[in-house]
Simulated scan of single mutants.
Amino acid sequence: MLMKSCAAVLLSLLLCACATKPEAESARPSMEAAKNANSADALVRRAAELVSSKKPTEALPLLDQAIAQYERAYRESGVLAYSARSAPETLLYALEGHKQNIRAQVYGVEWGLAYFLKGFALIDLGRIPEAKAAYEAAIKLSPRNSQYLSERGHIHALERDWLGSLQAFDEALRAVELTPPALNTREKTRALRGMAFAQVELGNLNAAKALHERVLQIDPANRMSVNELQYIKDQLAKRP
């Protein structure tokens, strides 16, 4: 089955991510912009609670309002804008601006989270194309956020684009090196399971088996991989 985080897990992830904001952000918004951003932060936290309570319709207006406030406060023409959840991620994005010889501004996690939550809410409402656009906006702000990249993989799976899904989850796995320690196991195993699911759909059962075995090396009690691994072994046993 396609993997979909439960509401309680989603909220815990979001709260943990908010608690791992960059120690020092490269951007220093004006007092008015900071006020708008703080208001938007509160909207994002409330929306996270609504999404976790399976109230996506109520969450969407709050998220649209928060996104509009972030865009007004932070978006500048000719400037690369990023949203990061850790100091290493902040540094990486700042260096990206240096490499491109373009000024880069790196803000806290909430801006990207607003788009991510919007995508999550839209998925719950079955509005897949809109969810895809929201996730892409989150990834543009946070291109090395493993959680966001895994949701891109999930969208590709919903579209039955198995190669695209495999590629997205592989990118998510490589991005785990920047994941805050408290989320590392969850995000790494999510990416590995996503890759395994795509490999099953592509008919590559041995590759899927190896991926689930990697999950269980990291998290021996991971019930999803335990069940999927047994299914794969049963299918392999039926082969001539």
Rank of each mutant, 00 (worst) to 15 (best):
E89H: 05
R160A: 13
G119N: 08
G153W: 01
M3C: 11
A104L: 05
E89D: 09
L10A: 05
F197R: 12
E136M: 08
R75L: 13
Y70Q: 05
V106R: 00
L163M: 13
E96Q: 15
E49R: 09
V51N: 00
I128H: 05
A182G: 04
L158H: 07
S12H: 13
A138M: 07
E177N: 12
D124P: 04
A27Y: 01
Y148E: 01
S142Q: 14
N36A: 10
R72C: 02
I67F: 00
L14F: 07
P143H: 06
E136I: 06
I232A: 02
K35C: 10
L95H: 15
E23P: 06
S12M: 09
P88Q: 13
L166H: 07
R28Y: 07
L10T: 12
I102T: 14
G153L: 04
V109E: 03
K54A: 10
I67Q: 00
A175P: 02
E96W: 02
S225R: 00
L141Y: 03
T20E: 03
I155R: 01
Q100D: 14
A19P: 06
E171M: 05
I128K: 08
E25S: 13
K209I: 07
A207G: 14
V51Q: 02
S30I: 09
K4I: 14
Q100A: 15
